[in-house]
Design a protein around this nucleic acid. Structure first.
Length: 300
DNA sequence: TCGCAGGTAGAAC
DNA sequence: GTTCTACCTGCG
């Protein structure tokens, strides 16, 4: 069925948002397994003109799909907003149809975002895909993201695995987090999994206001301000988040502060204040505008 | 080969 | 409170 909200699927899925790695692509069809009340559904989506063509018409599935691709967000209104601001008016034409790519499972977003810190898009998406293959549930060619209680039990590295198992050669130890290329983030990822198994219920975050949610998620190991904002934006749909990293800092500094060097913390405050309910989208568009327009190369 | 890039934690100021 | 440094991996 066609869902009549304009979107550029390829751009949205491959824009490096830390909710999840890109979906599997075959001949222009993007697919993934999505759990609805713990029941697996294979979602297949493809571009149809400016819209999205979805393989299921089940009401729950459609509602979830609309959530994942943020299809109820009014892009036209957002573009009017961009066009009314001198600093932002070029952005929509470089990113037309790009939407938030929200996590079907917020725990996956927590771990993906921790993994993305001080890392490249290519490397964190590879690591998360490997984690799904190793410890997720398999349906056809697709893997779910493991649940927190399962990830909490995974060995951190070869050494821990070797010492706790009957494997004879340490080189055969590849059932551990570090073998997924996550580096020093492994203990953060496992501690976060323990936290969300035993102490903190992720669903409580959704019912909090932004500030409380931010302070709560900031306590998770491996989560600083940038990662916290990514989790709130891509994992919980808090659109007022303005995840600020060095690139956003350079772009904001160029566009708004005459190239003056300002702290990432100040950039975050500025973005939230200036863009309000559009902060998350502005951040997303800024990053891709800078990438595609050549601004990023210039700011390097 | 090695220098570099990229957020967080923990220590030092 | 702000600033410095180590952390792991892949890339040029």
């Amino acid at each position: 069925m066609i869902i009549k909200s304009p979107i550029n699927l390829d751009l949205t899925i491959n824009s490096g948002q830390t909710s999840q790695p890109p979906w599997m692509e075959t001949d222009g069809t993007f697919s993934n397994v999505v759990l609805l009340d713990n029941e697996p559904f294979i979602f297949k989506v493809r571009q149809s003109d400016i819209y999205l063509d979805f393989n299921l018409d089940d009401k729950k599935a459609v509602s979830k799909l609309k959530y994942i691709f943020d299809l109820d967000f009014n892009l036209d209104k957002f573009y009017k907003y961009l066009n009314n601001h001198e600093e932002l008016k070029d952005m929509s034409k470089f990113c037309e149809g790009m939407r938030l790519f929200l996590a079907p499972d917020s725990f996956e977003c927590v771990i993906s975002s921790i993994c993305s810190a001080n890392n490249s898009i290519k490397r964190w998406t590879k690591s998360i895909s490997q984690i799904k293959k190793n410890w997720g549930m398999r349906y056809d060619d697709y893997y779910t993201f493991p649940q927190s209680r399962d990830l909490a039990k995974i060995y951190l590295d070869e050494e821990e695995e070797f010492n706790s198992s009957n494997i004879q050669d340490i080189c055969d130890c590849n059932n551990n987090l570090k073998s997924c290329g996550v580096g020093y983030r492994a203990p953060y990822m496992r501690s976060a999994s323990e936290l969300f198994t035993d102490e903190t219920d992720l669903s409580e975050i959704s019912s909090m206001g932004y500030d409380e949610a931010f302070e709560t998620i900031l306590k998770v190991p491996g989560v600083g301000p940038k990662v916290a904002d990514c989790i709130l934006l891509y994992g919980f749909n808090f659109k007022e988040a303005f995840p600020s990293d060095v690139w956003i800092k350079r772009i904001v500094s160029y566009l708004y502060f005459d190239g003056k060097d300002i702290s990432v913390a100040k950039v975050r405050d500025f973005g939230m204040e200036e863009f309000g309910e559009y902060a998350g989208y502005v951040q997303l568009y800024m990053f891709h505008y800078a990438r595609k327009s050549g601004l990023m190369a210039k700011l390097k």
